[in-house]
Design a protein around this nucleic acid. Structure first.
Length: 497
RNA sequence: GGUCGCGUAGCCGAGUGGCUAGGCAAAGCUCUGCAAAAGCUUCUACAGCGGUUCGAAUCCGCUCGCGACCUCCA
């Protein structure tokens, strides 16, 4: 098999992937900030890197996948902000930070389960690693690259840039950063505008606070990822992933902090997924155009024409390369739904086919096509995880499978080996790598028996040419979301929406 | 303003300089009691203008349009 190449955002080139320790991969992905509900835009990195994780495992690597939960910071729940600041409220009337964080962490996990993402190996929380963060900040201060002002600690970016390539990841020039005219909170405390906070002093009304060498406060946004990634993956690790919008300042800051604390850059391959847009604009809280996962799955949103199944959303995301923007529309989602249904049904049909076992293919040209389409899937994945091309190849194979079922193509047209390859490719890609699942829930025995009865009654009616009855059964079932299909061999199958 | 990226058929979207990706939609045909599903066929596009080249969607330049980051952001 060809080698895996990954587009490294740091060098802006596709590079051959070689893990630090042969056979093992350390993968870190920036997780959610659990101060609010996850939306469609958030789904993209977690599905993208789920496939990265799955594919690395498919290649035989032992992956340690770390994805953090950002549960520390300046948190407020919408609509409750004002109340929280009133200290006179009774304890149970106020919002506990832990309560808020717990609620949205659970909701996030709920969404991830529906998307069929594999659990990370470790899901560390920022609040659980305050000590590690404080230690790392102290280390940076001792090395002379951070300074304390009024109980807050800032990283000295200007000094760092004199010795290290600050801005390389995000393609930024420090001089421009120093001239930024923006007025931000705590700006006057910084020596330079490009400096960023490692630790923030907590004002009296701030709900999250910890004791530190610099007084009561809370960690800066960037330090948690540096502290937790180095703890669980080492000072240097293989892959760090996240959304493109995190490149600056978040990931740039991570590099700076870790470089000072550990003496070398932390990450060997940086991967960034592109954004999901809606009407051409990035989906984001500040644009006021988000569709939350709960809304997406229920259809309960003014922009949604219908609910969308989590698998449809997953498939829709994987039909595009992860470094391209992906525009949301009802039309696109609906097209994905039909496409996924067709693809999955093709897979179900394939599972039921039995090859006669001939070693010689009767149709050499088709045999070769099928073999190539299957083998190309690995090549496409090796080319920076091109799931879009993989999906296209699977679709090339669907008519072959359906043709075999329908009799237009003889099963012995391809060899037994090729048929095995075809089956394995579908199994590996549909289930293990792309992580797809059937849209319909698995139905229990009872419904199956009821439907068998109805199918038998309808069959009798048809043999008596009582089409009124047979059509009534079929139409009523269709209304209930159950589609009957009369197969060529006289049998009847059904699909449930 | 700075940095970076994008503009592909009705829609969504791949695309390594030469070999019509794929999906959805649409049309026709086959199969079927009728449907549905499936199969076959049709629809040959690369923002515009120059340039490099035997040959460009793909490389270069300019123009137009759009977006991302520079602030919390997946």
């Amino acid at each position: 098999m060809s080698d895996l190449y990954i587009y490294n955002s740091y060098t802006r080139e596709k590079e051959k992937f070689e893990p630090l320790v042969p056979g093992y991969v350390g993968l870190y992905v920036c997780g959610p900030t659990v101060s609010g509900e996850s939306h469609l835009g958030h789904a993209r990195p977690y599905i993208t890197f789920d496939v990265v994780n799955r594919y690395l495992q498919y290649l035989g690597y032992k992956v340690r996948y770390v994805r953090n939960i950002t549960d520390a910071g300046h948190f407020e729940e919408e609509g409750r902000e004002a109340e929280d600041k009133v200290a006179t409220k009774a304890l149970l009337e106020r919002l506990e930070p832990m309560e808020l964080v717990h609620k949205y962490t659970n909701l996030f996990h709920w969404g991830m389960r529906l998307f069929n993402t594999l659990d990370p190996s470790i899901e560390p929380t920022a609040t659980g690693h305050v000590i590690e963060q404080i230690n790392m900040i102290q280390d940076i201060i001792e090395k002379g690259y951070a300074y304390e002002v009024n109980g807050s600690v800032y990283f000295d970016v200007k000094k760092y840039a004199e010795h290290f390539p600050y801005g390389k990841l995000s393609g930024r020039v420090l001089d421009d950063q120093l001239e930024t005219t923006r007025e931000l909170d705590g700006q006057e405390e910084k020596r330079n505008k490009a400096d960023f906070a490692l630790w923030k002093n907590a004002p009296p009304e701030h709900i999250m606070r910890w004791t530190s060498p610099w007084g009561e406060g809370f960690p800066g946004w960037h330090i948690e990822c540096s502290a937790m990634s180095s703890k669980y993956l080492g000072q240097v690790f293989d892959i760090h992933g996240g959304g493109m919008d995190l490149q600056f300042p978040h990931h740039e800051s991570e590099i700076a902090q870790s470089t000072i604390a550990h003496g070398h850059a932390p990450v060997r391959y940086w991967m960034h997924n592109n954004m999901i847009t809606i009407n051409g604009k990035k989906m984001g809280k500040s644009y006021n155009n988000v569709i939350k996962l709960t809304e997406l799955f229920s259809g309960n949103h003014p922009m949604l024409e219908q609910p969308y199944h989590p698998m449809v959303v997953r498939f829709y995301i994987l039909q595009t390369h992860y470094r391209s923007t992906l525009d949301f529309s009802n039309e696109a989602l609906q097209a994905s739904e039909r496409a996924l249904r067709r693809l999955w049904e093709g897979y179900e049909v394939l599972k039921k086919l039995n090859h006669p076992g001939n070693t010689e293919a009767q149709d050499k040209a088709l045999d070769k096509k099928v073999t190539d389409w299957c083998r190309e899937c690995d090549e496409f994945m090796n080319d920076d995880f091109n799931t879009a091309r993989v999906v296209a190849n699977l679709f090339e194979l669907v008519p072959v499978i359906n043709g075999m079922k329908g009799g237009q193509i003889k099963l012995n047209a391809i060899s037994a080996d090729t048929f095995t390859l075809l089956s394995q490719t579908f199994k590996s890609y549909m289930e293990d790598i792309l992580g797809l699942q059937p849209l319909a829930q698995e139905q229990g025995d009872k419904l199956d028996k009821v439907l068998s009865l109805l199918i038998d009654i309808r069959k009798d009616a048809r043999t008596r040419k009582d089409f009124a009855t047979s059509d009534q059964i079929r139409n009523k079932l269709t209304e209930a979301g159950i589609t009957l299909k009369d197969e060529k061999d006289g049998s009847v199958s059904y699909t449930i929406e």
